[in-house]
């Protein structure tokens, strides 16, 4: 089995996790910029984080034969302070030429506030200006439905944004259809308690088909599982999905989307 982990926060994981992922068939891991679990106090903190994502983490992954890619942004949990967000966003262009950068993400909403929305618009502007792919985080739990609708409206309102270059992540049964209907990609996140379980993710694949959908673990510093994607592949196999269909979902689909970035290259 081969797979791509398209959403993982490896700065929060141990080298043992890298080893286990490589052992399970992971070919590449993609790391969106995220909240550290605490608020950074200055733009300099983000500068160091972007260096970590574009310099240090690829080296750590390479020790296990894994390609590491990253996405850059200020996340929605730190977007209530618009001034700080503007200063962080101003730092990002200098990193966009780095060889492992795929685009702007994971931008989005958390509590669906006006300031979060403002910062989302600023980052959509950044992505449009620099012709970057976009990876979107949708809010948690009770906030997901409303947040997904607000995000889709922002993206629809910018004619420069091509839907096939946007992935809306953390979809569930109540949001997946509206994302796919807009021509965007949808990511299903496999978490032990929130978001999707492997069984529910496979239900969604069986209902909506295999086009423009991918699976990710979004493993981070919280309760999460870096092997959630290969475990869901086993769930597909358990239900009788054939090897080619599994390969499409866990390898070819993320590869197809991510190849829209010139930086996404896998070793032959």
């Amino acid at each position: 089995m081969r797979y791509i982990e398209p959403h993982a926060h490896m700065v929060s994981r141990t080298t043992d996790d890298y080893e286990r992922m490589a052992f399970a068939g992971c070919a590449a891991v993609c790391e969106p910029a995220f909240w550290a679990g605490f608020d950074r106090s200055s733009p300099a903190g983000f500068h160091d984080y972007f260096c970590q994502l574009t310099e240090h983490e690829p080296r750590r992954a390479a020790k296990f034969g894994l390609k590491h890619f990253s996405w850059l942004c200020i996340n929605s949990k730190e977007a209530e302070d618009v001034q700080l967000a503007a200063e962080v966003i101003a730092l990002i262009p200098q990193f966009l030429d780095r060889p492992n950068v795929l685009g702007i993400g994971e931008i989005g909403l958390n509590k669906n506030s006006r300031n979060e929305l403002r910062v989302l618009e600023m980052q959509v502007e950044l992505a449009a200006k620099y012709q970057q792919l976009i990876l979107v985080h949708t809010p948690h739990l009770e906030d997901k439905l409303k947040g997904t609708r607000l995000i889709l409206d922002v993206l629809k309102n910018d004619p420069r944004i091509r839907p096939e270059r946007v992935i809306i992540d953390h979809v569930e049964e109540h949001t997946v259809a509206m994302v796919l209907d807009r021509g965007m990609w949808a990511g299903m996140t496999l978490y032990p308690e929130t978001k999707c379980t492997p069984a529910r993710a496979v239900d969604i694949l069986e209902i909506y088909g295999h086009e423009r959908l991918w699976l990710n673990s979004a493993c981070d510093w919280g309760v999460s599982d870096p092997l959630a994607v290969p475990k869901t592949a086993l769930e597909m196999k358990r239900r009788g999905h054939v090897a080619a269909a599994i390969d499409q979902v866990i390898f070819q689909n993320p590869q197809k989307f991510l190849r829209q970035s010139k930086n996404f290259k896998l070793p032959k």
Binding site: N110, L145, K146, L150, R200
Partner: peptide
């Protein structure tokens, strides 16, 4: 579509952004 109906039952049905984020977390309902 029972799973979708359950998720919708827990969801915020409103449409307008809130004035200010009331913290960072979600509680599930």
């Amino acid at each position: 579509h029972k799973a979708r109906a359950v998720l919708l039952a827990f969801s915020d049905p409103t449409a307008k952004p809130v004035a200010k984020a009331p913290g960072k977390g979600a509680v599930g309902a």
